[in-house]
Design a protein around this nucleic acid. Sequence first.
DNA 1: GTAGGGTTAG
Length: 673
Amino acid sequence: MIRWRRMRNPHFAVRGLLRNIQGPCHGPMLTRISNNESVPSCSFTTGLRPKSSYRDTDLYSLNKKISHLIRTGRIFEARALFDSTKNRNTVTWNSMISGYVQRREMGKARKLFNELPERDIVSWNLMISGYISCRGSGYIEEGRKLFDNMPERDCVSWNTMISGYAKNGKMDEALRLFTSMPKRNVVSWNAMITGFLRNGNVVRAIEFFERMPERDAASLSALISGLIQNDELDKAARVLFEFGNKDEAKEDLVHAYNTLIAGYGQVGRVEEARHLFDHIPFYHEQSKEGNVTFKRNLVSWNSMIMCHVKVGDIASARELFDLMTERDTFSWNTMICGYVHSSNMKEASNLFGKMPNPDTLSWNTMISGFMEIGSLTLANDFFERMPQRNLVSWNSMIAGYEKNEDYNEAAKLFTQMLLEGEKPDRHTLSSVLSVCTGLVDLHLGMQIHQLVTKTVIPDVPIYNSLITMYSRCGAINQARTIFGKMKMQKDVISWNAMIGGYASHGFSKEAIELFEVMRRLKVRPTYITFISVLHACAHAGLVEEGRKQFKSMTCEFDIEPRVEHFAALVDIVGRHGQLEEAMDLINTMPCEPDTAVWGALLSACRVHQNVELARVAAEALMRLEPKSSAPYVLLYNMYADVGQWDDAAEIRMLMEKNNILKQPGYSWVDSVG
DNA sequence: GTAGGGTTAG
C-alpha cells in the first residue's frame, strides 16, 4: 500500500493544515512513502467513500465537524455535538476518544471506550497511544493491558507499544516486542532507532539503521537529530554524507543539513557549520507540474547567521545577512539580537528602523539591549511605544530595572503589570524577589513569596532568590526553612546563599558546618563560597581554620584567591594580633590591595595599638580614597590615645590642607565585617 | 479516528 503525503511547507500554520488533510492529495508536490506491510483497510480509512446514502453523508460531515472542533481546541463543543446525536458510528466515537487522548484526559477517554458498542482496532490503538503518552509507569502498564487484551492487533498497535516503552526508557521490553511482532514496517524500525538514541545507545541505533531493510526520510532524520542530541555531531555528519544522497525526499535532506548546522552552531563549531552551509547541494527534480529546485533555504541562512551571532562574530553574520535575497522576521531579529549582545545599540537601532514589520520579539530584544547598556529611558520609551506587549516585555523591563538597581521603578512596573491582568511567571517572580532584596523589604518579599507559592512550582533559581531575599532582609530563620525545604538537587548558588546568610548574620559556626556538608556532598565551591567561609572564620576568631580554608582554596579546589579573600585573611590574622603576618600578606599578594584590605589592617592596628603599621595602612587608604575622612580620624585618635600629640597635630593639619571634612560614617569598616 | 522524525530566537 502506498501512503501519499504532501511535501512539507516550511510555514508552520500551513503545515499544520496540510497534516490534517485526509485522503489522496492532488497538490503539486507529492512524495511517495511506502510501507512494508499493508494496513488493514476499513471503510473509513480511505478518502474514497462509496456512493453513499443521505444518512452516510450526514454521518461523514458530523465526523468531520467533530474532528474539526477537536483540532481547534473546542472539546466541549465537540462533546456537545457528539451527545446531541444518536446517529453515530465507530469513527464518531473514535474521534471523540482521540480528542480526550490528545488532551491526556484518559478518564473521559476510557469511559467512552467502555461505552463504545463496536470497537475497532483504531479504538484500541487510540487508547493505547493515550496511555503511553501519559507520564508514569502505571499508565504504560495500562496500555500494555489493553494491548494484551485486544482481539486483533495491527502494525500500529505494535509500533505504538514499542514507542511507549522506548519513551519510558524500557528498551528491553521494546526490543522484545520488536522481535516478536509478526510483521515489521519502516515505522517499527524508526521507533527503535529513536528509542535507542533517546536512551543514549548510539551504537545500537546505528546498527539498526544499517540493518533495516528499507529507510525513509524519517529514518535519516531520526538518526541525525538523535546523534546530535547525543553530542555525536561528527557521526551525524558522516551519516548525512553517506546516506543523504540516497534519500528521495530532498526537502527533508535540506532539513537535515539545517539541523546539523544548528547543532554545530550550538557548540560553537562555526567552521564546520559553515562548511555544511556552503555544501548544501542543489537538486532539480522534474515532475508533471514542472521543475522543482531544492537548495539551501531561508532556514539554512538564518541558522548560519545564528551560528555566527552565537560566537559573537557579528561581522560574518552581517555579511551573510546582506547577501540574503529574501529575509524573514527571524533573519532580522537574529541580526538585531547579535548587535544587542555586542552592546552595539546604534547598529541594532539602525536595523530595527529598517526592518519591515518588527514583531513583539524585535521590540523585546531592543528593550533588553537598552537595559543592558543602562539606557533605562530608551528602554521605557520602546516599552511605551510597542504595539503589542507580552509577558517577556514586562519581564525584560522589570529585570532591567532590577539589574540597574532602580528597585522602585521595578516594583512600580510589577504592580502595573498585575493591574493590567498580566500573570507573572517564574522569571517575573525571581526578578521581583531580587527587587525585594535590593529594597531590603521583608514585607514585600513575604507577599511575593505567597504569590510564588500560588502561581508556580518553584525551581532551584526561585528557591535561591527566596533564600537570598530572606537572608538579606534579616530573616535568617526563614532562609534556613526554605533551604531545608528544597527537595531537589541544590546548586552551588543555593549553598552560597545559605552559607553567606549565616556568615553575614554572625552565625559563623553554622556557616562553617554547612560548608563542611557541602564538601561532603561533593558540591564544588566557588570563590564566593570562600568569601563567606573566610568571613565566618574572621568573625569567630578562627585563625587556624581561616588559614586552612584559605590554603584549601588553591590546593584542593584550584580557585585563585581574589582581593576579597586576601582582605578576609588579613582581617583574620590581624584581629588575632599577627600584624606582621598581615603586612607580609599585603606585600606579597598577587593583586592590588584595595580599601577592604587596608581597612582590615587599619582596624587590626587600632585594636592592637600598632601606630607604625596603622600609619602605613591609613596612608594607603588616603591614596585610594582621597576624600574620605575615616583614615585621618582613626589615625588621629590612635596618636592621641598613646599621647603622640605632635603626630596627632600633623594629621589635623594634613586634614585641613587636603580639605577633608570630618564626616562620620564610612564603609570600609563594614566591608570587612 | 491510531504508530516513527524535524531546522532558526528572548
